[in-house]
Amino acid sequence: MKRTTIALCTLLSAGLGAAQAETVAPTAIAFEEGAVAQSLTGVAGNAEEGAKVVSAKSQGNCVACHEITDLADVPFHGEVGPMLDGAGDRWSEAELRGILVDAKMTFDESMMPSFYKTEGFIRLGKAYTGKAHEGDVEPLLSAQQIEDVVAYLMTLKD
């Protein structure tokens, strides 16, 4: 009975902590030399969900530009960006988060999209129409999707 009560209290307090965690808005990101140390959600990323985001064309579609041996079953890996095998050894969690949020903060000449940026664009188009975008800009990925991708990339060790 005592263990059950302790376990239940632990679960409840963990749940309350997660519920109280606030998502950091794209305009409130704090960069430090390109890295973002603070979690965007306060909730640990899910590496399995991150792999889905990385490989899904309708989400991150990272494999369009990067090769990842772990996702060899996903067709059409690109060679524009660096191979992501060993990403968890090459970059810290904070550096990976910063690169995903806005790669240009780390790599000036990067062609990588800013997955969690909503302002400061030079010329924002509306899909493939050639017309200017109207209204608020939504980030390409949610804060939790960023955390999930970071968790997945951290599993890619040499």
Rank of each mutant, 00 (worst) to 15 (best):
L12Q: 02
Y128V: 11
L12Y: 07
G135P: 00
C62N: 04
A132W: 10
A94E: 04
T118F: 08
Y128K: 07
K104N: 12
P26W: 10
Y152S: 02
A18G: 01
S55A: 15
E49R: 15
K131N: 12
A127N: 13
G88C: 10
T27K: 12
R97K: 08
K104T: 15
E33Y: 08
L8Q: 01
V36R: 01
D102F: 04
A103Y: 01
T5Y: 11
D73Q: 14
E32M: 00
V43N: 09
R97Q: 10
V24C: 00
S142P: 05
G45H: 08
A51Q: 13
N46A: 08
T23R: 11
Y128G: 10
M1T: 11
H66L: 06
F76Q: 13
E147T: 06
L71C: 11
A47Q: 09
D102N: 15
A19N: 03
A56G: 09
A44Q: 14
E93S: 15
P75I: 03
A94R: 05
P139A: 03
V43M: 10
A25V: 00
M154N: 04
G42V: 03
T118I: 13
A56S: 15
E147L: 00
T106H: 03
D148Y: 06
A127S: 12
I68R: 02
K117F: 09
G17E: 02
L153I: 05
H133V: 04
G88P: 09
L71D: 02
M112T: 11
I99R: 02
M83A: 14
P113K: 07
G135S: 02
C9N: 08
D136P: 08
T23Q: 13
G60H: 02
G88V: 10
S39H: 07
M105L: 08
G60Q: 04
K117S: 05
L156A: 06
L156C: 01
A132R: 10
E48G: 07
C9H: 00
G98I: 08
A37R: 10
A56K: 10
K2S: 12
M83W: 11
I99K: 10
D89Q: 10
D148P: 02
D70F: 15
E109C: 00
P75T: 08
A64D: 12
V63I: 15
C62H: 07
V63G: 00
P26F: 02
P82L: 08
F76K: 14
D85Q: 01
M154W: 04
L12H: 02
E32K: 13
T69Y: 07
T155H: 04
H77R: 13
W91T: 01
V53S: 07
G88H: 07
L124Y: 12
E93D: 13
G60L: 06
T155M: 06
A7Q: 07
F115G: 03
E48S: 12
G78E: 09
A19I: 09
R97V: 03
K52A: 12
K2P: 01
D102I: 10
A103S: 15
A37C: 03
F107E: 10
S13Q: 11
E67M: 11
L71K: 03
V150H: 00
